[in-house]
Design a protein around this nucleic acid. Structure first.
Lengths: 164, 164
DNA sequence: TATTGTTATACTCTATAACTATA
DNA sequence: TATAGTTATAGAGTATAACAATA
């Protein structure tokens, strides 16, 4: 058992990261220019629009991985921009329910075409439909596998101190 | 011709971005913890180690996309940490040649095993060798295609002001 | 006691524009 | 005049830890 991966595997990883970085960079500019939002903010809005019901801060964070304070920060930005509202949950007074506003939905709808126009030439044009299908399948498997086992190092909430 | 993509295409894109974000996050923590460097810094060092010869700041930037000032900033960090050296080029006095130090190589070698240990369970374990091959081929095609046509919006150097 | 979320703070990183120096 | 790189500055985003309130 060797700790080193086959060079080809490592190469696939590096190329994956590089290509996505390029894509992310372009997409970020488009969102900033046309919508005045970051990619993270777009993700949060898109998620809220997709599920079509209020989410708690924790649920919202679950989709984007970051720390609680980062979500609070982003939510504050989005709320200030009138794209979401926050209200404490009737079920659990500790929780904050985040709801996307009409303006929020409108923004997502407004930036999506331009978003696609950036993605298409970069990601879709060079690939066949079959490639895209495979890519989708592969990354879905990867994503689901990642979500299934919470990363050892990045626990959402500081684990309780082991009895000292 | 419709501006909207097939939902499945868009889905593949979103999953791709999500999975890579998760991967990036984990990898970033590993590099920070075990090497005290960011992923960008790791990329720069790995690139210098791979080509095995000095690169100019511009050449270095080409691999990582960012603005000139960002490269200067990162190079300053790496130089301060003793991982690279900078010296003006004999060929072109304007250029700065960046050379990786022994400590820089040592650091890359030192963090790479841990890096792989993070990647393996997240990316490689859930995929067959064939999947990985396909992923590599697909993303290589995407990457090469992206590099072939410089993004319209993100010119490396501010284009000359159109004759006013 | 554990969990949800917020806040204060410090830090990293990035982009813009102005600047120097060389080609 | 254009290019390589640096610098000053300002802004966005993140994480940590301490905190308040609820379960």
């Amino acid at each position: 058992m060797n700790d080193a991966l086959e060079p080809r595997q490592l190469e696939a990883y590096f190329v994956l990261m590089e290509a996505v970085s390029l894509l992310q960079h372009s997409v970020e500019q488009q969102l900033r220019t046309e919508g005045g939002i970051s990619y993270v903010q777009f993700q949060l809005l898109a998620r809220l629009a997709a599920v079509d019901e209020p989410l708690t801060m924790t649920q919202l964070a679950d989709g984007v991985v970051y720390s609680r304070s980062a979500v609070t920060y982003q939510a504050a930005q989005l709320e200030e921009a009138g794209l979401i509202t926050r209200a404490s949950s009737p079920d659990d007074e500790r929780a904050t329910l985040v709801t996307i506003t009409a303006a929020g939905r409108a923004l997502v709808d407004r930036v999506l075409p331009g978003h696609v126009q950036v993605i298409r030439p970069m990601l879709f044009d060079p690939l066949t439909d079959e490639d895209l299908d495979q890519l989708g399948h592969i990354m879905t498997r990867v994503r689901d596998h990642m979500r299934a086992q919470p990363p050892r190092s990045a626990s959402r909430r500081r684990p309780t101190k082991p009895s000292p």
